[in-house]
Computed example of a mutant assay.
Amino acid sequence: MADEERPAQQAEDLTVFVQNLLNQMQTRFQQMSDAILGRIDEMGNRIDELEQSISELMEDAAIDEQRSPMEGGRKP
Rank of each mutant, 00 (worst) to 15 (best):
A62R: 13
L37R: 12
E71W: 05
G38W: 03
Q66V: 13
R46D: 13
S68D: 07
F29K: 06
G72L: 02
S68C: 01
K75C: 05
R74P: 00
E56L: 03
A35Y: 00
E42P: 03
M43L: 09
L57P: 00
M58S: 02
D60N: 09
R46A: 09
I63Q: 06
I40R: 10
K75Q: 11
Q52T: 10
L37I: 06
N20H: 10
A11V: 05
S68E: 07
E65T: 14
M43V: 07
F29L: 08
Q10L: 09
Q26I: 13
D13A: 15
F29Y: 01
E56T: 01
L22H: 06
E42D: 14
D48G: 08
G73Y: 03
T27P: 00
D13T: 12
L57C: 03
Q66M: 13
E51Y: 08
D60W: 07
R28F: 12
D64G: 02
S33T: 10
Q24C: 09
M1R: 01
S68F: 04
I54S: 10
E71K: 06
R28Y: 11
I36V: 14
S33A: 06
I47S: 09
G44T: 11
P7I: 07
S55A: 15
P76G: 13
A35M: 01
E12Q: 09
S33K: 11
I63S: 03
G38K: 04
Q19T: 09
P7M: 07
E42N: 13
Q30H: 12
Q26P: 01
D64L: 10
D48H: 09
G72I: 00
T15F: 12
E56I: 01
N45Q: 14
T27K: 09
A35G: 01
M25C: 08
S53P: 00
A8Q: 10
E59F: 02
F17C: 07
S55N: 12
A2N: 11
R46V: 05
D48Y: 10
E71Y: 04
E51K: 14
R67A: 14
E4W: 02
L57G: 05
E65Q: 15
G38C: 02
D41N: 04
A11S: 07
Q30F: 13
T15Q: 13
Q10P: 00
E42S: 14
D3F: 00
Q9P: 00
L50P: 01
Q66C: 05
R74L: 00
M1C: 03
G44N: 15
R74G: 02
D64W: 02
V18S: 04
Q66H: 06
D3L: 05
R6S: 07
D60E: 11
M25I: 12
Q26N: 13
R46F: 08
V16K: 12
A35Q: 05
R46C: 06
Q24E: 08
A62H: 04
M58D: 08
A11M: 08
I54Q: 14
K75V: 07
P76V: 14
A2W: 03
L57R: 08
A35W: 01
V16Q: 09
S55C: 04
N20E: 11
R67I: 15
I47M: 14
L14G: 12
L14Q: 13
N23G: 13
G44Y: 10
A61D: 09
S53C: 00
D60Q: 15
A8M: 08
N23F: 13
T27L: 08
Q26L: 14
D34R: 10
S33D: 12
D60S: 15
